[in-house]
């Protein structure tokens, strides 16, 4: 399993990398800061604005 986890940014709609288990993440494309929830231990998603 690769150690890369991605969520779709709601601002720029690009996929950005999220660290495993992170609760907050910043989109590396547009700089938006998000609260993150995990659908599965491998699949993060944006839950709302941080």
């Amino acid at each position: 399993m690769s150690e890369k986890y991605e969520a779709r940014c709601l601002n720029c709609r690009k996929r950005f990398e999220v660290e495993k288990g992170a609760e907050i993440a910043v989109c590396n494309h547009c700089g938006s800061k998000w609260r993150i929830s995990w659908v599965t231990p491998e699949q993060p998603k944006v839950q709302g604005p941080a």
């Binding site: 709601l10 659908v39 599965t40 699949q43 998603k45 944006v46 839950q47 709302g48």
Partner: peptide, 14 residues
């Protein structure tokens, strides 16, 4: 996978 866990309420977050 997301739908299985959250159902359509997942759309709310977006």
């Amino acid at each position: 996978k997301t739908l299985s866990r959250l159902g359509t309420p997942l759309l709310y977050d977006v």
